[in-house]
Amino acid sequence: MERNLSLNLHVLTARLDRAGDRILRAEYNVSYSRFLALTLVGELGASTQRALADALGVTEPSVSRMTAVLAAEGFLDVQPDPAGGHRRQLSLTNKGKQLVASAQQGLEDRLAALVAHSGVSYAEYAERTAQLLATFDRLERERTK
């Protein structure tokens, strides 16, 4: 067996990201990066632009521009932080919540079909992926101690 797992994972992730972007643009009129930002705001709760920038691995000015667009489109509510300063708190609007839920389901259904076509058990694939992510998170925490 050839040992190309790292390359194969990179290629698979890149192709899934591109396919997700095509699907989201065509069916939901939103890019994958904006969908990911909305998803993270939903999962992080009422967050700040700084927390979103950290989660996305981008700069705060980049997130500031993105959140302005998402707010203008009615998906995101951006409010000054009650603690003051230049921070902004983020939360999904009802329209944003509906988009995230619908798009997540659409992407999940397509991924489930892809996994089924590969002959791999969806449950096993999901379990192994969660196991890898948990191990990665644990090792990252140990590294930063």
Rank of each mutant, 00 (worst) to 15 (best):
T13E: 05
R22P: 00
S47F: 09
G20I: 02
G20Y: 11
L12N: 02
D81A: 12
S47K: 03
S47C: 13
F35Q: 01
Y32M: 08
G57I: 02
G20F: 13
A53C: 06
S62R: 15
A14H: 04
Q79Y: 08
L44Q: 10
S31Q: 08
N8L: 08
Q49T: 12
V58M: 14
R34K: 12
Y28S: 07
T59V: 04
L56V: 03
A19W: 15
L52N: 04
R22W: 09
R50P: 01
A53I: 04
D54G: 13
Q79C: 03
P61Q: 10
G45T: 10
V58Q: 13
Q49L: 05
F35L: 05
V69C: 03
A14R: 11
V30L: 05
P80E: 09
A46L: 07
T67G: 06
S64R: 15
A51M: 11
D54K: 11
F35P: 01
V58I: 15
T59R: 13
S31A: 14
L76W: 11
A72E: 15
R18D: 14
G45C: 10
V58G: 04
T13P: 00
R50D: 06
V30N: 01
A55G: 09
A72I: 02
D81R: 05
H10Y: 06
L70N: 03
V69G: 03
R22H: 12
G42C: 09
Y28C: 07
T59G: 14
H10L: 10
Y28V: 01
F75T: 04
L9C: 06
A55M: 11
R15F: 07
D17S: 08
I23Q: 14
A53H: 08
F35S: 01
V63K: 07
N29V: 01
E43G: 09
R34S: 06
V69N: 06
G74T: 12
D81W: 11
Q49H: 02
T39R: 14
R15K: 10
T13F: 11
E43D: 05
A68D: 13
T39K: 14
L52V: 08
V11C: 00
S47N: 01
L16A: 07
T39A: 10
R15P: 00
A53K: 09
L24Q: 13
L36T: 14
A37C: 05
G42D: 03
G42I: 05
